[in-house]
Design a protein around this nucleic acid. Structure first.
Length: 471
RNA sequence: UCCCCGGUAGCUCAAUUGGUAGAGCGUCCGGCUGUUAACCGGCAGGUUGUUGGUUCGAGUCCAACCCGGGGAGCCA
């Protein structure tokens, strides 16, 4: 599996590379808690904690990842979600009966395995389990995923099983780290989590295509494409807020950057400007990279992601205006001044950069109706896009919101939006409006970037795409 | 919606100018006392995406359709 962002089709999964199971602080706290079978004398432990039990008899609860065997030796690779370890069954030591029983379970059968922990240089990871007892919990025959490299269609159709493999588990651990980092940073900075509704009465921005559905007898509802407008209301109540949940786009996009259901973080701040938003983008992305580097070294190895790339994601990030970015494109692409940047334009602008790039002050025509205009030059909307390096594209879009009631009414009319649906939004300008700003961060694009994935579909447990809604 | 690529064994792929459809992996059986995607030997496994056409003969050529992948647009 050698996927960079430029690799077209390459989703083979080398299941049989293994975790190192050096002691890991993250796992040790939960080690004993997860025992579901009270062991008489042998403690039930997680593989990640095995090093602490050298010389002792322990029980593992896991699944058979792979087996190698000869007439008198078996090597059972066992995974339990915390790591991977090799179990040794020697016919001479174990006896014929146990040896035969240990040889029966198929790949991905669930097992309880008892044995003694030994340090051994020949074992992957340095420790192995000399097996004294094996109990099959749930049988598995003809497990569909094998050592063979698989194609994307097959893997995605078997996503519920693919999840057990090395790359998906590493990716999901990093996704978890990123989610926790985001919540930690925002709470530290005084943000309150306020969740936005998934059902909405109308388009938030009027541009993207919405999924619609019947909301009881006579009403149409839509799945939200953004919680931002609701966050503006919440910011007027709590000052600094964020929502973090799924967003839905019915765009018929089939690219490695698109999902129909994706997770979006949307912070919103009262009494804040475009500059404040850009500062928050920087500090948040910097902290995310630092947390992944700190918490997920093993996963980065599993994903063959070079940590040096992430070590460079340290603020400050370069910033430029749309106007400056457009000048870079002169004679490089077929870009037309005044248009939004396309994917080739983004790549040309960010070529050679190893940090995200903040592009601000956009032609108001290409931005949403609620964007505030630059008081110094009304041609520009006070928006900012953050473009990730390595071709991962736009991971953040945001800016300062318009506060003037008459201006917004005019924009709603110009964009042919149903004004009734926005009365509540206009109320926010009628009753104590303040300068405010925020942004939306695409979680899967961020995860894909941190992990070096070829496609955002690997950055979410069960991807929803134009042609795929199973499993 | 548009452009490009693909669909052959459970999986990953081969099959010369149109001429009897193959290999590896996996399963199963056998061999092997330290394997590292173990290795070695063997069995089984197919209406070549669908429909129609050209031809003595189609996996191969033509048409339509279905499904998937990549990209564009749009976006996070």
């Amino acid at each position: 599996m050698t996927c960079g962002p430029s690799c077209a089709v390459s989703l083979g999964d080398d299941r049989h590379d293994r975790y190192s199971h050096r002691a890991c602080g993250r796992c040790s706290a939960t080690a004993q808690r997860n025992a579901t079978i009270p062991a008489m004398s042998t403690p039930c432990v997680r593989i990640a904690d095995l090093a602490q039990y050298e010389g002792q008899s322990v029980q593992l609860q896991g699944w058979l990842y792979n087996r190698r065997s000869s007439k008198k030796m078996q090597f059972l690779q066992i995974r339990d979600g915390s790591g991977l370890v090799q179990g040794i069954v020697s016919k001479a030591d174990a006896g014929d009966e146990l040896f035969e029983r240990a040889g029966a379970p198929g790949q991905e059968a669930s097992l309880r395995v008892t044995g003694t922990v030994h340090a051994d240089a020949r074992a992957p990871g340095g420790f192995e389990l000399r097996v004294t007892e094996v109990t099959e919990v749930g049988a598995a025959t003809d497990y569909p995923l094998g050592k063979q490299a698989h194609g994307p269609d097959f893997l995605l159709s078997n996503r519920h099983l693919w999840l057990r493999s090395k790359r998906p588990t590493a990716t999901l651990r990093i996704r978890d780290t990123i989610i926790r980092a985001i919540r930690d940073v925002l709470h530290r900075d005084g943000f309150i989590n306020v969740d936005a509704p998934m059902f909405t009465p109308a388009a938030c921005e009027g541009t993207s295509t919405l999924f619609d559905l019947d909301y009881f007898e006579d009403t149409k509802a839509y799945l939200t494409q953004s919680g931002q407008l609701y966050m503006e209301a919440a910011a007027m109540a709590l000052g600094k807020v964020y929502c973090f949940g799924p967003a839905f786009r019915a765009e018929k996009s089939k690219t490695r950057k698109h999902l129909t259901e994706f997770w979006m973080l949307e912070p919103e701040m009262a009494y804040a400007s475009l500059e404040d938003v850009m500062d928050l983008c920087e500090s948040l992305l910097g902290e995310i990279a630092a947390r992944v580097l700190n918490d997920n070294q093993r996963e980065l190895v599993d994903l063959e992601r070079d940590p040096a790339v992430l070590e460079k994601i340290v603020p400050p990030f370069p910033r430029m205006t749309y106007d400056e970015a457009a000048k870079i494109l002169k004679d490089k692409t077929d870009f037309t001044y005044g248009d939004d940047f396309g994917a080739p334009d983004e790549e040309a602008i960010t070529a050679g950069l190893d940090k995200p790039l903040l592009i601000h002050r956009w032609p108001h025509e290409v931005k949403a109706f609620y964007m505030k205009r630059d008081p110094n030059d009304p041609r520009w909307a006070l928006g900012v896009d953050v473009i990730a390096p390595e071709g991962y594209g736009e991971i953040i879009g945001g800016g300062e919101r318009a506060t003037d009631l008459a201006f917004l009414e005019e924009q709603i009319e110009k964009h042919e939006l149903p004004k009734e649906a926005f009365e509540w939004y206009l109320d926010l300008r009628r009753y104590g409006t303040v300068p405010h700003a925020g942004f939306g961060l695409g979680l899967e694009r961020t995860v894909a970037w941190m992990c070096g994935l070829a496609h955002v579909r690997e950055a979410i447990p069960f991807p929803r795409m134009m042609h795929r809604i199973y499993p």
